[in-house]
Design a protein around this nucleic acid. Structure first.
Lengths: 335, 335
DNA sequence: TTGAAAGCGCTAACAA
DNA sequence: TTGTTAGCGCTTTCAA
């Protein structure tokens, strides 16, 4: 590294042109002759020069940064450690990078309640991607109402004044349940908290499938963690014995917790109890028996989230959108 | 949102004080009387005012941003989807937030080769935390040599001109292997690639333990993924039959892949083959049998990483440091 | 196709 | 304890 950090003006002097020319060249402005542009870019590289982003952000009123907020429910352990949420963050990172945008990672705790202020007024970011609706959409709504460019990963069917991208959770819940029914299950437990937006839709899909088959619903409402699932199923077994032959779990982590409880009691999967999860995380394939699951297309969703955010940044409006969903049939539900 | 975005000068006018007073008050400068400070802060809140970070960064030459780079090996699938790396990122996020720092997430792909330039010269961040040494430390070294404030999660024993924080991988490998030996295992396979810095240390710990016990080493070198482990163990079984009675896996994901291969062939865990993983990810507890593992203290490590980075930012130097490690004994290795 | 110059909003040195 | 003021490094309008 040189003794002194170069600035735009220095580079301009070196090249014998004006600062505006260098600025334009480095920003690929077609006003500048291609030849000049290339020459200046090369000079910049040679001298290890980089534009000062603070200065350009100040001047251009644009950051090219997107804040990503992991909006987990406080009081629950589902959080920064949830493999699925993290996978989504990873995919969003890729999608943003492809558009030349950077990712400022945040949890709702850091940003406080006033996202609009914290991220946007302060020019930390141009827009926000919220991962997870949480139980209480008040913060999101407030930000959207304040005019913040904002998109959400969640259940697209939720009425909202901001675009939500996510899976068709209703269909997912229905598919999983129909699959269990087709395998011969008669008493299918729904394992998860229907009060949560996305899970609520999955639950309604479950109910719809049961209804068609004249089967009876049975909910074990738990937090979205594997240990809650483990304890939930254990308690159910202790209280009522093996009163079910199928489980539709609201997530794979939950399904795996349930699986553990079953295996410990030598309840055979899928023979005694068939099991379907949701998310298709890496572990679904590795577990034994491997876990059937509803696969969400997080990659496609991430691209859409970024597209819709960009649309808003350009003053266009964007609508909620559903992405495809798919049943991955593995051992835990084969008959 | 108001029709016009307030700036510091507007707020100063509203309050009837100078801009410097407001600036100092909002930055909690003790020069300003506490009473005035509180009054101005409240006024700011009332008017939904936030300092323009671009402007303050430009002026103060400081971003309060730390770039976190996930430095996975290209060509390998271990990456943004690895639960352990992501857990580390999550912990780092928390540790940074506690110091009022923000986290710019990046993968090595986005930043390109010239980190110093991309993050530091461009004033995107004040410093860098690299998660994972990767197989080739050249990039990191170059950045460190260029004077970039930099810390790395990795193997602290690696000779380096930058501080590395991580577990005592040697002891971890030794502990795991000794535990398997104590359980009666005679032929323990090391499952992982010793060419990777951290894993290499684990391997040497494994060798040390074997050596003391006069046992023979047997390495199955694979990528750090569960599917590679699954195939690796399958191949070994096909080629040589059940020629081992213990596996020391270089990560939990790898251990779980191996476990799946064993279960599919009805090889009993831990009776026929005992198994210890590394990392203690959430799945270790959920799997069946539950997976014994070496737990790394990622929380402590994250705090240290941030501390050492801050030290460098303040012109002090910082040394590599080892964090404690612990064997979590579960079913996969009980006798 | 390029240059001159103003100014983005803040902080901190200096003055009071 | 507070105010005045210069200037951080860039982009962009206007002029040539």
């Amino acid at each position: 590294m040189n003794n002194k950090q170069l600035k735009l003006a220095d580079l301009a002097k070196l090249a014998g042109v004006s600062t505006s020319t260098v600025s334009r060249a480095l920003n690929d402005n077609p006003l500048i002759k291609k030849e000049t542009r290339d020459k200046l870019k090369q000079l910049a590289k040679q001298h290890n020069f980089s534009l000062n982003t603070a200065a350009s952000r100040l001047r251009s009123q644009k950051t090219n940064v997107v804040a990503v907020i992991i909006n987990f429910d406080s009081g629950t352990e589902q959080s920064i450690n949830d493999p699925f949420l993290l996978k989504v963050v990873g995919e969003i990172n890729l999608a943003l990078n492809k558009q030349g945008l950077e990712l400022l990672l945040s949890n709702s705790f850091m940003a406080g309640d006033d996202w609009a202020n914290y991220f946007i007024n302060s020019r930390r970011a141009d827009g926000i991607i919220v991962v997870g609706q949480g139980k209480d959409p008040a913060n999101i709504e407030a930000a959207a109402n304040a005019g913040v460019p904002l998109v959400v990963w969640g259940d697209p069917k939720t009425p909202s004044n901001y675009p939500i991208v996510g899976s068709d959770n209703f269909v997912g819940g229905r598919l999983a349940t129909e699959h269990l029914l087709a395998g011969g299950a008669k008493n299918i437990v729904f394992l998860g908290d229907p009060g949560h937006a996305e899970i609520g839709e999955r639950y309604r899909g479950y109910l719809a499938a049961l209804n068609t088959a004249n089967a009876i619903a049975n909910v074990v409402s738990i937090d979205i963690t594997s240990s809650a699932a483990y304890h939930g199923i254990n308690q159910l077994l202790v209280a009522k014995g093996l009163c079910f032959d199928g489980i539709m779990a609201c997530s794979d982590m939950v399904a795996l917790g349930a699986m553990k409880a079953l295996k410990e009691r030598y309840i055979s999967i899928p023979n005694d109890v068939a099991l379907v999860g949701f998310d298709d995380i890496a572990m679904a394939d590795v577990s034994h028996p491997s876990l059937s699951s509803i696969k969400q297309n997080t990659q496609r969703a991430s691209v859409l989230l970024v597209e819709k955010l960009l649309a808003q940044l350009q003053g266009q409006s964007a609508k909620s959108q559903v992405v495809e969903i798919e049943l991955i049939n593995r051992q835990s539900s084969k008959r």
